[in-house]
């Protein structure tokens, strides 16, 4: 069974965010980049399906600047068979639809049973690209998958919603977005890391994929401004020498000052 796994290469969640000189994007100078954590679940599940069936390939794909190749290389080290890097060129910010169009074009070049995405790409935190690709390719999708059973030509996926799980059946091919809980991703082995050096990363340009770079750069959803969040007011500490009195004071503040209970 063949899988296509879309990988977002994003700032490490521990990274301190500094605003760039343009006031619209981050200052990338000290940023450490990682494969978005949800994409690790997606890749792991794709690898497990392939291993369970004993056949198929797992291709990883990323849209972005040159550094995205480092992320792809990490995925190859974990066991993906090959990779596609779609060079986003000068367009620093592609919106979700432009990204989805590029990924859909890359996915059209192969034949896949599964298209995998993270439930969200950390950083932008939009949760848009997966279902958008499914729509562009006219495929069914299941979002927020925490458990998957693969049957003959169909799957049963458990998806997390508010206070419940939805059990969803779908035909193949299908697009899936991975949620935490789906599996425990493996680490790359030394052998994997060595082997990854021999695997290929195909390189594509947006323009070659029928996506004019200019249109992508002029993505419709734009960041007009990026700011650090307004600082929260300093914490009012309540002395705790007498827990009962402290508790009473807290409740008083919540009622009379904050007016939230």
């Amino acid at each position: 069974m063949n899988s296509f796994v879309a990988i977002a290469y994003v700032p490490d969640t521990e990274t301190r965010i500094k605003i760039g000189a343009d006031g619209k994007s981050i200052d990338e100078s000290d940023v450490k980049w990682i494969v978005s954590p949800y994409d690790e679940y997606a890749l792991e599940e794709a690898l497990r399906i392939k291993e369970a069936k004993g056949a198929g390939t797992v291709r990883v794909a990323a849209v972005g600047p040159e550094r995205a190749k480092t992320g792809l290389r990490e995925c190859l080290a974990r066991g993906a068979d090959d990779a596609v890097w779609i060079d986003s060129g000068d367009s620093r910010y592609l919106d979700a639809l432009a990204t989805a169009r590029a990924l859909a074009a890359a996915a059209r070049e192969g034949s896949y049973d599964f298209l995998w995405f993270g439930q969200k790409g950390v950083g932008y935190d939009e949760s848009l690209v997966g279902p958008m690709v499914a729509e562009l390719l006219d495929l069914p999708h299941v979002g927020n998958v925490i458990k998957l059973e693969v049957g003959e030509g169909k799957i049963t996926a458990h998806r997390e919603i508010e206070g419940a799980h939805e059990i969803v059946e779908s035909t193949l091919p299908v697009a899936l977005t991975a949620q935490k809980g789906l599996n425990e991703p493996r680490y790359a082995s030394l052998k994997g890391i060595m082997g990854a050096k021999k695997k290929t990363i195909a390189e594509k340009k947006l323009a070659e994929m029928g996506i004019p770079e200019a249109a992508a750069a002029g993505a419709m959803v734009r960041w007009r401004k990026l700011e650090l969040p307004p600082p929260r007011q300093a914490c009012k500490l309540i002395p705790a020498d007498d827990p009962a009195a402290a508790a009473k004071e807290l409740v008083r503040l919540l009622r009379e000052e904050a007016k939230v209970i």
């Binding site: 700032p11 969640t13 990274t15 301190r16 965010i17 605003i19 981050i26 950390v122 950083g123 932008y124 935190d125 002029g218 993505a219 419709m220 959803v221 734009r222 960041w223 007009r224 401004k225 990026l226 700011e227 650090l228 969040p229």
Partner: peptide
């Protein structure tokens, strides 16, 4: 439409619009 949304795990917030969509 012009909106604000938290980004980078709430470490920043972005003002966004839809261009000429």
């Amino acid at each position: 439409l012009v909106g604000w949304r938290p980004v980078y795990s709430g470490k920043a917030r972005a003002e966004v619009d839809c261009g000429n969509a």
